[in-house]
Design a protein around this nucleic acid. Sequence first.
DNA 1: TTATATACATAGGAATCTTAGGTGTTGTTT
DNA 2: AAACAACACCTAAGATTCCTATGTATATAA
Lengths: 115, 115
Amino acid sequence: MSNNNLIKGSLQTIILKLLEENEKMYGYEITQRVKELTAGEIKITEGALYPALHKLEAEGLLTTEIQQVDNRVRKYYSLTKDGQKEVTSKLSELQGFVENLQRILNPEIKPGFNI
Amino acid sequence: MSNNNLIKGSLQTIILKLLEENEKMYGYEITQRVKELTAGEIKITEGALYPALHKLEAEGLLTTEIQQVDNRVRKYYSLTKDGQKEVTSKLSELQGFVENLQRILNPEIKPGFNI
DNA sequence: TTATATACATAGGAATCTTAGGTGTTGTTT
DNA sequence: AAACAACACCTAAGATTCCTATGTATATAA
């Protein structure tokens, strides 16, 4: 259905960044936020999201808190202190990669170019 | 050794784009060009490059031509017509993805923003 | 009551990359 | 002369990351 197999490697960073801005979010909310921010062009599949969340939690970057909302269970995720450090690191790593990508794909952009 | 596991999905596009600009290149040359364009920050491993080249050739996007240079064999790759069409398509797909990524990671960038 | 939206989860498989190794030539250093 | 780095190709095994498909369950709208 969703045909964006370019994400590879950036999903963790996306999750951490959204949680840096929002304090706590639950899985489904993350998929909707991404869809909304990208006008429906990037769709995080649940089969990718939930394992990624579980992994980040296992690594100690996220903590969870379960809330009951109208007989419906929500699992809220938030950044740990380690998680807060990782956001900055992962973000600059990804931004650096994208800049290098632009140097390959858009050769007119000079090395000193800043967005 | 090279620690850039972010490439996933963009290697094909990188190869096609370099070949769009250079008419013909051989594998080792591609790794050096990428290293040079990114100041050594992105290193294409041969274990990733050669299978990717073979796949693009199998898909009919590249053709090969072997040259002998001082008892040394070079396998030159160049774009087929199908390959030339694919470059544009793959490039805009990747650029679109990067723009969406920026909308998630740099919320201050407005939807109409162009680089 | 059937479908859609909400909300979680996992198993199996596909795709892509890294690690690690192999072959052989040329040029430089010890 | 030997050893090493650079050049130039290749592949196999494994890890990672994602998609597809499926399952569970509740709420609401058609």
